[in-house]
């Protein structure tokens, strides 16, 4: 598979001294789904923002980001689509959904987008796009808003979709629906996906490859099976062990006094 994105020794520092990201190497192949896993302060969002060119101007960056084996930087919108954690924060509260999407399509028309608003909305799983297009963001549920945010990110038909904790604020049932949607969309369009989450299990349900980060460094990368069955780094092992499964013995049972 041809690499779509190659990151070499990427180091990012916000305050000039402590790096938020330290010599990160990452390759995303065309059509590949990468799950980027890390807890708070791991640098996973910094990595995503760096790829999308969304770092604050004061941040110091070194290392290289190569896009499609050239030295060009990926363009926002048409090369990379970005879905943020808070869907309410990424939509304009006083604009109808349809108008927001139409605006994005208009701005990105340089790429001759063949998509129109109803089609985009249908693609993210709305059975009746016209009704949704006429609504304001506050009239939608959290899951619906996140679907719209995904539609916004897809408007430019990007080669790489970045979902930055895009399901973390949602209920598990809605979360599962969004994960299925992302999985289906990337399969249909052949675009790559960078799925960023703190939830190892969630990432393992959809990713071809998992990348685990901690304290600004990439610790380990591999297929979900490799990571889950044979974690090499002790932290990754503890992360796997901390998954609270619905099967097997529970903490409550292992800790319960026999006398009870």
């Amino acid at each position: 598979m041809t690499p779509l994105l190659e990151i070499t020794k990427l180091t990012v520092s916000y305050d000039g001294t402590t790096p938020a990201l330290h010599e990160a190497n990452l390759t995303v192949a065309a059509g590949e789904r990468v799950g980027l896993i890390g807890e708070s302060g791991s640098g996973k969002s910094t990595l995503a923002l760096a790829i999308a060119g969304l770092l604050p101007r004061t941040a110091r960056v070194s290392g290289s980001i190569r896009w499609q084996q050239t030295d060009t930087v990926p363009r926002k919108g048409t090369d990379i689509g970005y879905v943020f954690q808070d869907p309410a924060g990424s939509l304009d509260p006083v604009m109808r959904i349809g108008a927001q999407l139409a605006e994005i399509l208009r701005v990105l028309r340089g790429k001759q987008s063949q998509l129109d608003v109803p089609e985009l909305l249908a693609r993210v799983g709305f059975p009746d796009p016209e009704i949704i297009a006429a609504r304001y963001p506050h009239q939608l549920s959290g899951g619906q808003k996140q679907r719209v945010a995904i539609a916004c990110a897809l408007a430019g038909q990007p080669r790489l979709l970045i979902a930055d904790e895009a399901t973390s604020a949602l209920d598990t049932i809605v979360q599962a629906g969004i994960v299925r949607l992302l999985s289906r969309l990337t399969a249909d369009t052949g675009s790559s996906l960078l799925f960023i989450t703190h939830d190892l299990a969630l990432a393992s349900t959809l990713a071809d490859r998992l990348v685990v980060m901690r304290n600004g460094r990439i610790l380990e990368a591999g297929t979900p099976r490799e990571i889950i069955e044979h974690p090499r780094h002790p932290y990754v092992a503890s992360l796997v062990a901390s998954h609270l499964a619905l099967e097997g013995p529970t903490l409550l049972e292992t800790q319960r006094e026999p006398a009870q």
Partner: peptide
């Protein structure tokens, strides 16, 4: 049933 089905499991879909 929906809640149980939606709980993330380690590589369920994969």
């Amino acid at each position: 049933q929906q809640l149980v089905a939606a709980a993330p499991r380690l590589f369920h879909v994969a």
